[in-house]
């Protein structure tokens, strides 16, 4: 079981549901995909051509390490994309 990483007792946006690789994951309005995935314990976001695991690194849209597929559009930066209800996310490129 993944540990609770969302800091308790803070005001957040409305709770919404996104799907990550087909599995429903809870997120909150205003969060980035990076934050929602981290809170769900998902760190592995893509693999290099040689199969190395990579995850979000710079967190501010510079390093392009956190590329995921959002609503069937590939290579979207997780750290620069805000979650929307029903968003479909696929990791591992």
């Amino acid at each position: 079981m993944t540990p609770q990483l969302r800091i308790p007792s803070t005001a957040r946006g409305k709770q919404i549901t996104i799907t990550v690789n087909g599995i429903p994951v809870t997120a909150h309005e205003g969060e980035t995909v990076h934050a929602a995935l981290t809170a769900a314990g998902i760190y592995l976001l893509r693999q290099t051509l040689s199969g190395e695991a990579r995850g979000a690194f710079c967190g501010m849209g510079l390093c392009y390490e956190c590329l995921v597929t959002v609503n069937h559009i590939p290579d979207q930066r997780a750290c620069m994309t805000v979650v929307q209800d029903g968003m479909k996310i696929r990791t591992h490129g």
Binding site: E31, T38, A53, G55, A56, F57, G59, C79
Partner: peptide, 25 residues
């Protein structure tokens, strides 16, 4: 340093300050 879970100080700070999500346990 390329492993998932290794991140910049800024990335961790954004998670905590903007999204109130801890970067890890």
């Amino acid at each position: 340093w390329t492993l998932p879970g290794v991140m910049s100080l800024g990335a961790a700070q954004i998670l905590v300050k903007s999204h109130q999500v801890l970067p890890g346990a």
